[in-house]
Simulated assay, not measured.
Amino acid sequence: MITVITEEVLEAAREMNRRDILRAEHKHNIENDSAEPFDVDDDEIWAKYKSIQGLKGAEGQPLKVGGSHYSYGPYPRNRRILADVALAAGWSVEKARILERRCVNRNAKHMSSPPNVMVDLSDPNQPKMKNGRPLTFQNVSWSFLRNYIELEMKEMDPTKLSIVKAAVLDLYETNSKTGKKNIPVYPPGTKRRSDDTIPVSDDDIKRAQEELDKRERYIKASRMQFLDRKSYVPPDKVKARIKAFLQSSNMSEEEFQKAIDVTESEFEMFMKEKKKQPLLESKVFHNAPPFISEQKGEQPARKRKRSIEILDDA
């Protein structure tokens, strides 16, 4: 498979991350009496690494995409994104290539779905586009790539998804073909995980994890609503059960919040919220009903199995 990720690509991405942090903080990195300016552009960095080749045309000449000889395809951002994912997750080049191959195959299947057949899937290791050129990681648009990376990381390394989300996926501009990455600027004294691999703070990673958890809670509640209706309790009824429980028990609100593992602000937000999605995302919605049932000594409702009638052919 034609790959866009190598050890030199990882090193170039490290250098770009260091430069972007310097650029964001408006300062120079002085080491060994040599200053590294933060206004070096991507092309200059890519060009330093001789093994990183650009996309070739029909006659073997380097293609210019967005004015760059070193962009290696229509989306010069993608190569650095893959490198950033590998750096943030602590992966080797070999593991990054597994993610690369999975994303390319997912995109090929999406593009080849009827009625618009755009990709030749005869070679599963390297699908080809209509013009005969190989479909590579560089050809995947950002709108799809972001979803592909999250889906594949859930299988490959789910414990690193929040780090990759905070340090990579949340920092790139939407629909930007230039690969612009917006490094956060922190107040003085705030530490980043790393200046070249994870250019965000632990607080950013925690926020990313909470966003992922909220999404998973919403998906779980939605599935319950439509597939397991006997177990589903609407948010309004959950609120009513909480109020009734607090009135009938000796437990204070503070004790109740601690028991169901939510903060005061999360509890107040749930009790005041009217919109459906934030209610279904809330930890209160998911944690309170089982706790109340346990305190009352109630048994959880069992799913009723549908009886299957076997009809004789006679």
Score class of each variant (00 low, 15 high):
250 N>Y: 09
178 T>G: 01
79 R>E: 01
60 G>H: 08
234 P>N: 09
260 I>Y: 06
115 P>H: 08
306 R>D: 15
51 S>Y: 04
131 N>C: 06
205 I>W: 03
228 D>V: 06
12 A>C: 09
154 K>H: 03
237 K>L: 10
289 P>E: 02
179 G>N: 04
127 P>H: 05
256 F>E: 04
310 I>C: 08
204 D>M: 13
7 E>A: 12
312 D>I: 11
245 F>G: 05
208 A>L: 03
292 I>R: 03
167 A>D: 09
106 R>C: 08
168 V>Q: 01
54 G>T: 13
238 V>W: 00
87 L>M: 04
245 F>L: 08
245 F>Q: 04
27 K>N: 14
11 E>N: 11
100 E>N: 12
31 E>T: 15
233 V>E: 07
122 S>I: 03
287 N>D: 02
220 K>Y: 12
204 D>L: 06
67 G>Q: 06
177 K>E: 14
125 N>L: 11
79 R>L: 04
169 L>G: 05
74 P>A: 03
59 E>I: 08
130 K>V: 03
243 K>H: 05
56 K>S: 14
75 Y>Q: 09
163 I>Q: 06
190 T>M: 14
165 K>S: 14
129 M>D: 08
207 R>G: 05
60 G>A: 10
57 G>E: 07
55 L>Q: 15
229 R>D: 10
278 P>D: 07
230 K>I: 07
180 K>A: 08
199 P>R: 01
130 K>G: 01
170 D>Q: 12
229 R>F: 13
166 A>K: 01
20 D>A: 03
291 F>Q: 05
116 N>I: 09
282 S>V: 03
108 A>N: 10
23 R>F: 12
133 R>M: 14
111 M>E: 09
39 D>Q: 08
268 E>K: 13
187 P>R: 05
290 P>Q: 10
72 Y>D: 15
141 S>V: 09
310 I>F: 14
65 V>T: 14
19 R>A: 01
302 R>C: 08
313 D>R: 13
279 L>Y: 01
17 N>G: 13
41 D>I: 11
45 I>Q: 00
153 M>Q: 00
201 S>G: 07
215 R>N: 08
230 K>R: 05
220 K>F: 12
304 R>K: 14
191 K>L: 15
8 E>W: 01
55 L>N: 12
163 I>D: 08
13 A>M: 03
146 R>S: 05
182 N>S: 06
164 V>S: 02
27 K>R: 15
106 R>F: 10
48 K>L: 05
196 D>L: 00
266 E>T: 06
121 L>N: 07
73 G>K: 06
58 A>T: 11
184 P>R: 02
49 Y>E: 04
180 K>Q: 12
131 N>T: 03
62 P>C: 04
36 E>V: 11
6 T>N: 04
135 L>F: 11
214 K>E: 15
255 E>V: 10
276 K>S: 15
182 N>L: 10
299 Q>K: 13
187 P>M: 06
28 H>Q: 15
256 F>C: 04
83 A>H: 02
153 M>G: 00
